[in-house]
Design a binder for these strands. Structure first.
Length: 218
DNA sequence: CGAGTTTGACCTGCGC
DNA sequence: GCGCAGGTCAAACTCG
């Protein structure tokens, strides 16, 4: 797994209060290499769309990309944390990412490789649990987890042939935060309107670059 | 009636 | 081997 340097850069522009539909969010693919799908799956999975939740959408912490590394929060396969640029996070709960990166990277080196399942988790401040990322999810399970008063919900992408899963649970320390974990890579573009979707030539995967027409980003 | 949700049961991995 | 906890299945149910 070489050249994993593609680090996703996430820009988040909070919507004006009461006007969620005007929110624009886009993701840029922070590198030329897509030999690993971490960045592309991240982009495809997380593009928030224009729904009522937008004003609450606040990506504050990137927890981990599994990448076959158990217990290595907040890091991609190369040990570099994703770059999160969020206007809202700047005013809110961001900042834990870079602090965690160093120790995490060290931990990653010590863990032997195992078959990777692309997993990516992040914490958002949201009143609702189901962040509309543009994909259609079907709930298939709910489970109470130990050491947490909040149940964990299990969702699968309902698009035929796509077996991406996500887990959603409220942060046990701060219920105002929702921890979402995506697992797998979508093999299709978002069912919602996608204005800039690209397909990686090497992997064939799609990743969403934006969900708003270019003119609306201003 | 079809799609999605709920929820108890079942399966599996892991630590002791 | 056993028990626990997390993850998944599937039948019943709800809703549009």
């Amino acid at each position: 797994m070489a050249a994993v340097g593609a680090r996703p850069v996430l820009y988040h522009h909070p919507a004006p209060a009461g006007d969620a539909a005007s929110m624009s969010s886009y993701f840029s693919h922070g590198g030329s290499s897509t030999t690993t799908s971490s960045a592309s799956s991240f982009s495809a999975a997380l593009a928030p769309t224009t729904t009522a939740l937008a004003e609450q959408f606040d990506i504050s912490e990137f927890l981990f990309d599994d990448a076959g590394v158990a217990g290595a929060p907040g890091v991609f396969a190369d040990g570099a944390p994703p770059v999160v640029v969020s206007d809202a996070a700047a005013a809110g709960g961001g900042g834990a990412i870079s602090a965690a990166a160093g120790s995490v990277a060290a931990a990653a080196e010590a863990v032997p490789e195992r078959p990777r399942t692309e997993r990516i988790a992040f914490r958002t401040r949201s009143e609702i649990e189901i962040l509309d990322d543009g994909y259609k999810w079907r709930k298939y399970g709910k489970k109470s987890v130990k050491n947490s008063p909040n149940p964990r919900n299990y969702y699968r992408c309902s698009t035929e042939g796509c077996n991406v899963k996500k887990r959603v649970e409220r942060d046990k320390d701060d219920p105002s935060y929702v921890v979402t974990t995506y697992e797998g890579t979508h093999n299709h573009v978002s069912p919602s309107t996608v204005y800039y979707a690209s397909q990686d030539a090497a992997s064939g995967r799609f990743f969403v670059a934006g969900t708003q027409p270019p003119g609306s980003l201003n």
